[in-house]
Amino acid sequence: MSNPISNDYTNLLMEVKQLIRSAQYEALKAVNREMINLYWAIGEMIFNQQQNHNWGKSVVENLAKDLQAEFPGISGFSARNIWRMRDFYLTYHSKEKLTPLVAEIGWTHNLVILEKCKDDLEREFYMRMTRKFGWTKNVLIHQIDNKTYEKILLNQTNFDQILSEEIRNQAKLAVKDEYTFDFLELSDQHSERQLEQSILSRVELFLKEMGGMFTFVGSQYRLEVGDEEFFIDLLLYHRQLKCLVAIELKTGEFVPEYVGKMQFYLAALDDLSRLPDENLSIGIILCKSKDKTIVEYALRESNKPIGIATYKVVSTLPQELKNQLPDPEQVARLLEGIE
């Protein structure tokens, strides 16, 4: 028989630990906001003095030396970092939408975004995603180098026609146009089974590449329809969308027949596996390659929410695809889904 006092103590301990962690997190956020505000104020002062008194490089270098002498145990006041404060303020002071976001992420994250992203919408995307998923500096750098922003904006789904307005943008953000599985140990020629087994051996990295809000449900997920059995390659669950996500793995080029098969799987999932409080199941078909026009036609008449994506083991995104990105108004509406 269990000890009620022991159980009560265990519950108390868990609650206290959670309170401590929450307090620590809130304290770190407060410290970060104060530091960002400090750097912003210093950057503003430097900029104003440059405008009013034509200050040059030597003044900033002297300021750095004097600050380091006055505060010997505090880092962050090198000449290089002071110049970054000035650039930080200059870049964002007139951007009403971005100004509140800079205090929501760390200084090193801000520097990465400031230096690597040249477009305001791209910066907003990475700020929101960093805040949402708690990306480390290295993860953020990887996401930028891997062109996550472009790959999400270029994705091919039918979500606009199928899903409700409440979850449409969130769902579109959950599907990339291309996934990079550079952590998989695969030869150029591999079977669908080998791809699946390799993913299962690196499932944590796979889930991170898929977007960070997925949990793993199972592989070769069994569905019994009539007197027959059917198996979905991978089944995930999206915590924010609150829906099952069926993934089919294809090592060749996309063909329209894949959509019909995925529609069948989603219909069966919705009837047999979906819980009453969950949203409609979503399908992602991962192929080695695809023709965007064929995908567009294949999805046009589909009555289930499906996205078609490709996968590679090396990060690539042709530069000419930059010209195919949606217009700024469409991008801005999509970014509103990242809370």
Rank of each mutant, 00 (worst) to 15 (best):
P4D: 10
D8Y: 03
T10M: 11
L12H: 11
L13V: 13
E15Y: 04
E15R: 14
L19Y: 07
I20M: 08
S22D: 15
A23W: 03
E26V: 08
E26Y: 05
A30H: 12
V31D: 13
R33A: 12
E34D: 15
Y39T: 02
I42G: 02
I42C: 01
G43P: 01
E44S: 12
M45E: 11
N48G: 09
Q51R: 14
N52M: 10
W55D: 09
G56P: 02
S58R: 14
V59C: 04
N62K: 13
A64R: 04
A64Q: 08
K65I: 06
G73W: 01
S78E: 07
A79N: 07
R80L: 10
R80M: 11
D87F: 06
Y89A: 10
K97Q: 15
P100T: 00
A103R: 12
A103V: 08
A103G: 14
G106C: 09
H109W: 03
L111N: 11
L114N: 03
E115M: 01
C117A: 10
D120T: 04
E124K: 06
F125M: 08
M127K: 03
F133Y: 12
W135T: 05
I141M: 11
H142G: 08
I144E: 07
N146V: 07
T148H: 09
Y149F: 14
L153V: 05
L154H: 02
L154W: 01
Q156N: 05
Q156H: 00
F159N: 01
E165G: 00
R168M: 12
N169L: 07
Q170E: 11
D182G: 11
L186C: 06
H190Y: 12
Q197Y: 00
S198C: 04
E204T: 13
L205Y: 09
L205D: 13
L207G: 03
E209I: 00
G212L: 05
M213S: 14
Y221N: 02
L223F: 06
L235H: 09
L236C: 07
R239H: 12
Q240N: 14
L241V: 00
K242E: 12
C243A: 14
L244S: 02
V245F: 05
V245P: 08
E248K: 05
L249M: 03
K250I: 04
T251C: 12
T251F: 04
G252F: 07
E253L: 03
F254Y: 10
Y258D: 06
K261Q: 15
M262S: 10
M262P: 03
Q263T: 03
L266S: 02
D271V: 06
L272C: 02
R274H: 10
L275S: 10
D277S: 09
N279I: 01
L280A: 02
G283T: 01
I285P: 06
L286H: 06
C287E: 05
K288V: 07
D291R: 04
I294N: 02
E296K: 05
L299T: 07
N303I: 00
K304M: 10
P305N: 01
I308Q: 02
A309F: 01
Y311C: 04
P328L: 05
P328W: 06
E329S: 15
V331A: 11
L335Q: 06
I338M: 05
